[in-house]
Amino acid sequence: MSNRAEQAKQGLEIVVLYCQHGICDDAKASAWSQDAEGMYVRAVMMPCSSKLEVPYILKILESGADAVEIVACPEKSCKLLTGSLRAERRVEYIRGLLEKIGYAPERVGISRKLAQKPDELIKIAGTRADAVRSLGTNPMKTGEQQ
């Protein structure tokens, strides 16, 4: 059984993309993954949430992730001033695109937090997982039709 199939059996796969300025210093790491209750979390640190590009998110979903959560800084705390605002607009755009192809927009979300520890990122991923659990797994993961 492939890793992905095993993950699918275990639970949802949630990808968390977080701004490096929103994580506490001692927890900074470029990428990590962790099994959590009912889900598998893959986390990737970004230099700023404004680095979020629309194709990246869609390719993550295309590759089978059940949901993507972007963790950006609160609007007034963004070190690049408008980075997190741009990220939010792109998330809205992506959600609109997903609706157009019949995918639930809830598969992509954004939160605004500062000074996060990894455990808190897992909690945020859990909230996103709860939002998509009723949708079932991403059809791209299993090759099934919805």
């Binding site: 695109l97 791209m140 039709q145 919805q146």
Partner: peptide, 14 residues
């Protein structure tokens, strides 16, 4: 690179 994954996802869904 935005449209391609969208089309793949939509086609597979159908």
């Amino acid at each position: 690179e935005t449209l391609a994954p969208l089309l793949r996802m939509a086609l597979q869904k159908q």
